[in-house]
Amino acid sequence: MPLLRDIAYVRSGDKGDVISVGVIAKSPEDYPTLLRSVTPAAVKALMGDWVKGEVEVHPMDNIEAVVVLMRNALGGGATRTLRLDQTGKALGNGLLRLTVVEEGAGA
């Protein structure tokens, strides 16, 4: 089963207790698949109790990318968190573990 890793690149960082992840399609043809695969519910389920707040997915059709915002996701923010990855630079790559949803699959 293909993973998001196979069709997208990631760059992530922090704003307060929010982790912001840019997920960029490797090619324009991958973009519709990326949009199907990166949903707030899928992200919430993957990240478990590390993401305590809402997840938003903002599409950027102009560059075939989405911006994923994970709220209350950094254990109180970069200065306060007990995690080693204080700014969420590594956690963004975790999204690449999402399973790709192929066309016509499910809802």
Partner: peptide, 8 residues
């Protein structure tokens, strides 16, 4: 362009 932003 997508780095550390909120609503794009």
């Amino acid at each position: 362009l997508t780095y550390e932003i909120g609503d794009p």
